[in-house]
């Protein structure tokens, strides 16, 4: 039970809570970013952000 991981992250309640919150934050960011990248790859060229450059550029020229 006295492994370094246990001592560092889980032994104290405050450390445990910090671990939970930091992991949650990090995981959520990674998961959201990853799923967005995958989604945009599947739907390449279909979404507005893929095609809006056509219409934005045209306005700049005018």
């Amino acid at each position: 039970m006295a492994s370094p991981i246990y001592n560092l992250f889980f032994r104290k309640n405050t450390a445990m809570l910090t671990t939970v919150f930091v992991t949650m934050f990090g995981f959520q960011m990674a998961f959201d970013t990853g799923s967005t990248v995958l989604w945009d790859k599947i739907n390449q060229g279909r979404q507005w952000k893929d095609i809006k450059s056509r219409y934005m550029e045209k306005e700049d020229e005018e």
Binding site: I42, N43, R46, Q47, W48, D50, I51
Partner: peptide, 15 residues
Amino acid sequence: EHTKWHKTYDHASLR
């Protein structure tokens, strides 16, 4: 294509 459950609307088509 857009009714598939992993596809978005084709926004060029929407336009």
